[in-house]
């Protein structure tokens, strides 16, 4: 049965088996390939996207469970063309990615954290990022980059006030 999805601010009509995980709909039907497959069982976080502003594992979210929520993928994280999300900029400044394969998921988890909690403690960061594996082991840089982004967001809102 055809179904309408709101992805990165655009509507798409898809027609797939209702048990198909959102991950594969995004990657195959919508050709938004920034969201990755790593385990298929909600263990690695590579497939992390947002339903509204909640980070979820799209590999275990059947399309039937998705309603009218706004879906955001890594392609929709930046606020506009040629503007990076503060986390994306911090990721470059700290040279976070190695192979880069896990990083879409890491960024979506981190961005959900900062959206909900702009001043996270180290424990908050650990907890929010615990579902995201990086086999290249870039955790130290990820943590530092989240800190940097949080600081910059705080500075920006200070000066804008």
């Amino acid at each position: 049965m055809p179904k309408t999805l709101a992805v990165n601010g655009e509507e798409h009509v898809v027609d797939v088996a209702p048990d198909t995980p959102l991950l594969w709909v995004i990657r195959e039907q919508l050709a938004l390939t920034g969201t990755k497959f790593g385990c298929g069982i909600a263990q690695c976080g590579a497939c992390t996207i947002w339903l509204d502003k909640q980070a979820i594992r799209s590999c275990v979210t059947p399309i039937a469970a998705v309603g009218t929520e706004a879906i955001t993928t890594i392609e929709g994280l930046a606020p506009g063309r040629d503007v990076l999300h503060p986390l994306q900029q911090a990721w470059i400044d700290h040279q976070v990615p190695q192979c880069g394969y896990c990083q879409s998921g890491q960024l979506m988890s981190a961005a959900a954290l900062l959206a909900a909690n702009p001043t996270p403690s180290d424990e908050d960061i650990d907890q929010a990022m615990q579902g995201n594996i990086c086999r290249c082991g870039m955790y130290q840089r990820i943590r530092a980059a989240i800190r940097t982004a949080a600081d910059r967001i705080a500075e920006a809102s200070d000066t804008s006030e």
Binding site: R27, E28, A31, L32, T33, G34, T35, K36, F37, T73, I74, E75, L77, A78, L84, Q88, W91, I92, Q95, V96, P97, G100, Y101, Q103, S104, L107
Partner: peptide
């Protein structure tokens, strides 16, 4: 120096083998 491949690895545009899309492709 900054790695030349990193900008594409923070916005989802880096193309890995899994991201190849061809006309008429099946899985």
């Amino acid at each position: 120096v900054q790695r030349l491949d990193l900008p594409s690895k923070v916005d989802g545009s880096a193309r890995f083998a899994l991201d190849v899309r061809l006309p008429d492709m099946v899985y």
